[in-house]
Design a protein around this nucleic acid. Structure first.
Lengths: 187, 187
DNA sequence: AAATATATATACAGACCTGTATATATGCTG
DNA sequence: CAGCATATATACAGGTCTGTATATATATTT
């Protein structure tokens, strides 16, 4: 991928999170990225297309980082499940963390027919399904129920972190997740 | 309060949730409310002022409804705490539910210096503190910790409901809350 | 009926936004 | 050096937005 395209994606990711998606104009993005609108519209067909690519990249980066961490951490499914929020916390508290795109995007694009909303919704579902597969591997009875609960904790904590950086919300989400997982494992 | 002012508040609340705050122009609001811009700007000094009043009304309505429900439901603090998510679920699944304003607003106004963000942040804190007082009354040891965890569940579930109406997320948040509260009461 | 407060209708200024058009510059390849 | 792809600089068309100005209508009160 072109370095300019990559630069635009990084800058847009940052600005969308810190200033909002609709409130960030393409002029601002190219100015910060040190390029011009002509170049941006060469790599992205529209602003909506840019938003979608930003979302895709953010989600893919997170998912592959997380899977890799979990796969190398342990082979025992129940241990993987218990380590889930350890790694999530590590990701969220890293200085480069800029929020989860799909949470902000779904708030800014509430119309269900909007492609941005649809992608956000799909990413949320994908993540929940990933947790569900971890839970199922660990022989949790109601894997779907636990996965939903854990994803609620996750999304709530990200929301809290986005509202106030360094709130430590994920630490408490982690503690809560341990209680919920232990309970589900005992069932 | 003037009936027109009240009508504008109701319509704005609805449109902000269904179309987004920044994406909803005052022209649309007055058209749906069946009035004109001149009237809107008589009752609200600016669009930002309207947003703030919408947030205040939404939060006040929810908080007073919830306190009243809890106060008439039981006198035993631990029972009140356990009934918390029962009533929250009742509120969220009612047909007139249009999302929690402060959750959407904090996503659309991420700048911490924005008055809208500040009010959202304050309302989130206020709600958490209310839960904390319930927990403290029930002699929970780490009342603040539990309150934060429950508020994460709450915000995550509202987020999920906003993303997809009728997702039933609050039902699972309620189940999770019971586990967390029972655990904290046993400590 | 006259006076006053309230609401409407409509137009517009100024700002911002997306996406494109046009012309120029830069760097790489043959 | 010549040719070509890539990036820049800049201007602008057409749209949307907020907030205001101006003129008119309606309803209540005196």
């Amino acid at each position: 991928m072109s370095t300019l395209k990559s630069k635009i994606l990084v800058v847009a990711t940052d600005l969308f999170q810190t200033r909002g998606i609709n409130s960030t104009g393409v002029d601002t993005i190219v100015a910060v990225a040190g390029t011009t609108k002509m170049t941006l519209y060469k790599y992205f067909t529209s602003k909506e297309n840019l938003i979608l690519e930003v979302l895709k990249k953010g989600h893919d980066d997170f998912q592959s980082w997380l899977s890799e961490k979990l796969n190398t951490s342990s082979k025992k499914p129940s241990e993987k499940l218990l380590k889930l929020f350890e790694f999530i916390e590590e990701w969220v508290t890293s200085p480069s963390f800029r929020g989860m795109g799909f949470i902000k995007a779904s708030a800014e694009f509430p119309n269900e027919e909007s492609p941005v909303h649809q992608l956000s919704s799909e990413q949320s579902r994908e993540f929940r399904q990933y947790i569900c597969s971890l839970a199922a591997d660990a022989n949790i009875k109601d894997a779907e129920g636990l996965a939903l609960q854990l994803s609620l904790l996750f999304e709530g904590a990200v929301q809290a972190e986005q509202m106030k950086r360094g709130s430590g919300a994920m630490k408490y989400a982690k503690k809560a997740s341990k209680i919920l997982i232990d309970g589900a494992l005992a069932d």
